[in-house]
Design a protein around this nucleic acid. Structure first.
Lengths: 155, 155
DNA sequence: GGCGATGGATTACAATTGTAAACTAAAAAT
DNA sequence: ATTTTTAGTTTACAATTGTAATCCATCGCC
């Protein structure tokens, strides 16, 4: 029921979604109030973003008198993961471990998090390699160039 | 010497940057060739992105006859980290461990990666808490609402 | 029942982004 | 030296995004 988190949204729309995710069902007024606080957006501005999200199918509307109750079928967690995955598309496989290490170093963890990550890490350890193969196009990643240089030396 | 990876670039510009990062110094032709392959961009399109990156100060130019050699002072690793950090701004602190766990589960690791991550994890373990405090604005995160509900029940 | 407030829809408009052609100057080839 | 090819610069133009005012329908209140 995740309704594909494949929809692209902008940063501003994301702000709106966060309010919706936080609340299950919200009125535009609630969204407007929160974002007037956080982003100093005029009500009309927030309305625009709500409208665009409805058009994109990210927000559902349920009529309630003269107004709508907004909700979404897209899970926040799934969406966030999809966004991060997207970013990863721009990164060489060989670099990803380093990026994850960095992210990990930046955040706070709960005991549950530690346990979860430990489990995954143990699993990954059994499949670890000396050098993660680079998946990039030649010319778009260091690895390839180094490889070519090596090949060159060999011949 | 990182020259602030604070500059925002678009996805398309990122493609160009990857070629530059992969090569130290490149000509526009090399960039054009790679991206004609990968993205089927017309040379003129790639030229536009190169131009915009130069204007933004992400690319340096060194004259070499009738053409330029392009290079950058921005480190790829630093840049990637900054981009991920940016994304994290849209995520509740309490959720971040989960996201990192997910990312970890998605990638391959080298032995060195495993070691590095293990070290960081061990460190994090000593600072782990039962529940990572939520940093979100009230109304923009579940945590706050749950908290309010709890507070409510208490009274 | 009329009127002000509220919420949604329409319109606006500049900046950024994706996509590229056209133009120009300089280098390479003949 | 003239032509052809390159590389960089300028211009173009539609789509998306940020930001918002205005308009219109309705709801609640006097």
């Amino acid at each position: 029921m995740a309704v594909a988190a494949d929809t692209k949204i902008t940063d501003s729309e994301w702000e709106v979604m966060r309010v919706v995710w936080a609340n299950q069902e919200v009125t535009s007024k609630e969204i407007i109030d929160v974002l007037e606080q956080k982003k100093a957006w005029k009500p009309a501005t927030t309305k625009t973003f709500i409208g665009r999200l409805v058009k994109k199918g990210m927000l559902n509307t349920k009529k309630d008198g003269n107004r709508y109750l907004y909700s979404t079928d897209v899970s926040e967690v799934a969406f966030v993961k999809a966004m991060f995955n997207d970013l990863f598309d721009n990164v060489c496989d060989r670099q990803k471990g380093d990026v994850v290490a960095y992210l990990l170093s930046q955040i706070r963890l709960s005991f549950a998090d530690v346990e979860k990550i430990t489990t995954i890490l143990t699993e990954k350890e059994t499949e670890a390699v000396d050098l993660v193969p680079c998946n990039c196009l030649p010319g778009q990643c260091h690895c390839k160039i180094i490889k070519e240089e090596n090949d060159h030396e060999k011949n």
